[in-house]
């Protein structure tokens, strides 16, 4: 099963959802991703990823209130589930363990 691993983009999306707190819906997530990662986030891609994450049980969603913008259509808000949070924390821990093992000099950016 692929479920236990987080893809790089999946992780970014999860982080954004967590960062946006109660305001995490697809368009906002796209904008946020673009702003902080500097790469273009296509709605199609983000939508597919959100859908997959929900299927894996890392996210859950509910429809919000109808508003006048968006042609009167409701937004779907995403929140992290407990497995979602665990997955994020675990992946961060894995990274930090790896970071700590790197000797400081090998990452110096100066020449030579």
């Amino acid at each position: 099963m692929k479920g236990s691993h987080l893809g790089e983009f999946e992780e970014l999306v999860l982080l954004t959802v967590a960062a946006l707190l109660n305001d995490a819906y697809s368009v906002a997530i796209c904008d946020e991703l673009e702003r902080y990662t500097g790469r273009t986030a296509k709605l199609g891609v983000v939508h597919a990823v959100l859908n997959r994450l929900e299927e894996k049980g890392l996210l859950k969603s509910k429809l919000g209130e109808a508003t006048r913008v968006r042609g009167g259509k409701r937004k779907r808000y995403y929140v992290l589930t407990v497995p979602g949070k665990t997955a994020l924390v675990r992946s961060r821990e894995a990274r930090e363990t790896l970071w700590r093992r790197i000797p400081e000099f090998s990452l110096k950016l100066s020449k030579g």
């Binding site: 819906y25 697809s26 368009v27 709605l43 939508h47 859908n51 429809l63 913008v69 968006r70 042609g71 259509k73 409701r74 937004k75 779907r76």
Partner: peptide, 15 residues
């Protein structure tokens, strides 16, 4: 179950 918010999203981009 996916149609409504997807339509809304597209509408937002449209605007």
């Amino acid at each position: 179950e996916l149609a409504e918010d997807l339509e809304g999203d597209l509408h937002e981009y449209f605007e």
